[in-house]
Amino acid sequence: MPKMSDSKWSIYLSIFVLLCIIVSGLAAPLIMPYNPFQPDMSIRLQSPNSEHWLGTDALGRDMLSRMMLGSRNTIILSLVCTSIAMTAGGIIGMLVGYYGQTADKIYNVICNIFQGIPGTCLMIAIAGFWGPGIGGLILAVVISNWTGFSRIIRAEVIRIRQAGYIEGLICLGAGDMRIIFHHILPNLRGIMLVLGTQRLGRSILSIAGLSFLGLGIQPPAPDWSVMINDSMLYYRSAPYLVLIPGCGIFLLVSSINNIGKHLERCFGWHKNEVRPE
């Protein structure tokens, strides 16, 4: 276990890095030094120098400008995917956890089915069947992620349901919806926040993987994983073309993971899931 001062320092660093990435993504049109779409073959494959701080890619486009713009798609898409998956998984988990019995049995079978196909395989297949594009990407990530959310939410709802105050509310004649939305939902906020942050990092990695395989965000949109895929042909002569976007993904995901870990410690909630995905 790291010391408290240690983790405080790392959490501030993570927030700082995350803010830098978000701000540079938002303000990219204002602070970009060059046009990220403008190819210039006379300056192609330049390593980092004073004019192009992060060098230029195979078509002579400025890497720094592309890196700034490249975070946008990833962040927005991962937020959309995670929030859809969390809403769907949360609602299903809450209803199943609250009503239990038959619903619970059916739910378990459905969950086993969805978890029976390896997550990445299902994701690749859905994105492949849908055809390249953002719709397929979102569908793929949501379908392979909602079970993870709903299982944990369900377990938590079952735990809360057994509490004395819920029994008291039932005795007072409170309706199901009132109990769910006014008394169970507020108790789930912490868990939702922790889970959401943790899954956000994971879904960024999934989206990056799919885009790398050419199934997600399509070039010429500047996206970090698409940039890595584009420069696969040149990584022997210009390894920085792979390293720089790779570092971008790493910094983004590791800062989100760090914040997630910190939140987990704050809310005193530790996941105890044996099943991944």
Binding site: L205, I249, F250
Partner: peptide
């Protein structure tokens, strides 16, 4: 921490 934050392809 590093391993869990890096995409497999990288």
């Amino acid at each position: 921490q590093v391993c869990l934050s890096v995409p497999g392809f990288l």
